[in-house]
Design a protein around this nucleic acid. Sequence first.
DNA 1: TGCGATTGTGGACAGTGTACACATGGGAGA
DNA 2: TCTCCCATGTGTACACTGTCCACAATCGCA
Lengths: 207, 207
Amino acid sequence: MSTARATYRHGDLRRSLIEAGVELAREGGPDAVVLREATRRAGVSPNAAYRHFADRAELVDAVSDAAQGAAAAAIEAELDSVPAATGVESAQERLRAVGIGYLRFARDEPGLFRAAFGVPGGLERAFVSEKAGPGGSSPFALLAGTLDDLVRFGALPEERRPGAELLAWSAVHGLAMLVLEGPLHDLDEQTRTMAGRRVVEMAVRGI
Amino acid sequence: MSTARATYRHGDLRRSLIEAGVELAREGGPDAVVLREATRRAGVSPNAAYRHFADRAELVDAVSDAAQGAAAAAIEAELDSVPAATGVESAQERLRAVGIGYLRFARDEPGLFRAAFGVPGGLERAFVSEKAGPGGSSPFALLAGTLDDLVRFGALPEERRPGAELLAWSAVHGLAMLVLEGPLHDLDEQTRTMAGRRVVEMAVRGI
DNA sequence: TGCGATTGTGGACAGTGTACACATGGGAGA
DNA sequence: TCTCCCATGTGTACACTGTCCACAATCGCA
């Protein structure tokens, strides 16, 4: 944002570049994260970025982490709306909340969503702190925790727990991507939320 | 392919550009469909493309249609492996085949898959002949037909039929995208096929 | 105090999409 | 058969991108 600066050194260029990148991603997804524009917004020459990121892909990765943090925040917000309680009912309700939160984030912040989950990543960094929301957990961690609760309260047989993340995640992710950058691009709002509810229900029932 | 030509007129440049584009997409997905390279491969100057496509996006759309045709072929192949029969069992088996075929195509042709289903489109062109496979049906048509069979044979209550495509499609599409260009990028082959089977099962059960 | 590692700059290059003016020649009408 | 129109392809140019290389400024440590 600040295009002028007094000192030769920037101070915290890495953070500034990520913030600029997040703003670009918000407006146009991961492809809109253009390195030169980020440096421009940070008030710095294009090559300065290469002191902090090996190449554009690495900047996009950092932006993706931050975007996953924002997604975690959205999911946490949805989780907080579920009355805290133990038992099968409540655990299932929390799983629904995770799914709805995920889809809500996709609707409210399509650019950030695609930057968060539409960029190649690896599961080994799924719990890393850069991807965490205000509550300290990454989206994947929130989902995993909810599934653990399902097992604890007997709503999910232990032998079906391994890999259950992939099932639930696939369901909501698929709908989001079909709508955001797939053949369901111009699905109307109403059909979309209806489909969202049913997809979540399918996951809860079919895990 | 043919970098030389005798006549000033090309003959069928539009088709050549699409074919070159498909080849590029096969190697690197929709982003790899670069207009100048396509014209180069067609042995023509860059601007010649603009006589057949308004811009790059329109070329990518045409490539996407062709890629969906290839996807339809993969699904048809999987469907053909199901013994033809009537009844609930067989109808469900065909739904499984559609899902497995979709995922198999994503695994075997990741670039084409992303070009086919990772590009903004609209449902109004879902049945268009450019997206059809050898059998004459588009991927969406194949899925819809299979779901209709489920209803016909009493495996799916009529009131749940509307929008059922979205559910089944979301499940498999989500897994494919998470693996191809998402946080599950480097999931090993074994986990992947296992997840594929379970996702399909979730859809069959949870629709 | 001085020196070295960090961080930022300037210039350059290859590559992209696309706009504008121009060239070519196939085919319809005379 | 000749002629001209216009669909199709060419050439040049521009702004933009990621990234390489050599150089400059400064912060912090010896």
